[in-house]
Design a protein around this nucleic acid. Structure first.
Lengths: 182, 182
DNA sequence: ACACAAGCGGATGAAGTATCCGCTTTTTCT
DNA sequence: AGAAAAAGCGGATACTTCATCCGCTTGTGT
């Protein structure tokens, strides 16, 4: 089941490509330009990553793991409401740091099965945090996990529009809106 | 000051171009395709509208006027809080109907001075509705008009992600978040 | 050291955007 | 009405960007 190990030069190229891609904007990766930056040929980039999305997915793996960690931390907090709030703040922060995270989370299909599995596990964990907070009466219960995810993406979008300075304020607004109102 | 009237054939072409553009997605207008659809040459399209944004701006004029009407209606409501809520709902609806509205509102520079003037007037009106609601204590007062506009764009984005069915729910969340909390 | 598999990278084509300019149509002037 | 001038038309064309293909190079196993 384990794929054959990469040849030495291939591993080197792969790293150079990833390094170059990290310096670029995940929103519009131009693989041609990544190739030039990395000092490799265009063909090399396209063999390692068939599409721009596959490359973004790889870049985002680490962020996805951090997202998973956030879900676990939140699950460990005994106070459901506080867990949800802290978790949501962390999730928005992560979204803003990792430009590719949203693209990966929202993508219907994933290039790598491992990413798909990690993604599913993470989303399950986050949903559980939400549902626990809802059962505790801290969060309005007419929302699904998917919907909250979409709202987070919307807030991420709004923060980016505003230039990043309003992060805290906008998240506060979202949290206030999600709280169960009397 | 008044520009010379269009020649008959020019007016005809212009209308055919606008009609074709209305049928297309404002998010990615391909002027080449608009030309084909309209049955005119590519050059004709590019003379009437120097950039895709200029064309979107023209398409959005009507929506912008409706936005202005929304601001005036809201200003006429004696209850500041209710005015704000109803206005915000209407604004989000309009955003969702007119795909180009967000692009025009957020654009730093406008192709047409008339659009620029109408835009400024409308934004002033909406800001006044917000500030009145804030003075009345109905809306949290640590938000500027610009920020609310960004949040609306974020909600629009989230609704589009979700496929449109969550419009009411997401707007409710935003309104709850904007309300001044005890 | 040799053979062959794996990888490399640029030439290449496909698709889209915007510009330019010779030709046609409309308007204006007499 | 007829001719000259102005305005408009539209496609050939140049420029980008994305993705593929394939001959050449390099690493790996015997």
């Amino acid at each position: 089941m384990t794929p054959p190990p990469l040849r030495a030069d291939a591993a080197r190229s792969r790293e150079r490509i990833l390094a170059a891609a990290r310096r670029a904007d995940p929103k519009d990766l131009r693989l041609n330009e990544v190739a030039r930056e990395a000092g490799v040929g265009v063909g090399t980039v396209y063999r390692h990553f068939a599409t721009a999305h596959a490359l973004v997915e790889e870049l985002t793996r680490e962020a996805l793991e951090r997202l998973n960690a956030i879900a676990r931390e939140a699950a460990a907090d005994p106070d459901p409401g506080r867990a949800f709030e802290a978790g949501l703040r962390a999730v928005v922060d992560l979204h803003l740091e990792s430009g590719g995270l949203q693209a990966v989370l929202l993508a219907a299909h994933d290039a790598s099965p491992e990413v798909a599995a990690l993604k599913a596990e993470t989303l399950d964990g986050l949903r559980e945090v939400l549902e626990r907070a809802q059962r505790a009466g801290a969060v309005r219960d007419d929302l699904t996990g998917d919907q909250v995810e979409r709202l987070v993406c919307g807030i991420e979008y709004a923060v980016r529009l505003a230039g990043g300075d309003e992060r805290g304020l906008f998240v506060d607004v979202l949290l206030a809106g999600l709280r169960r109102n009397p």
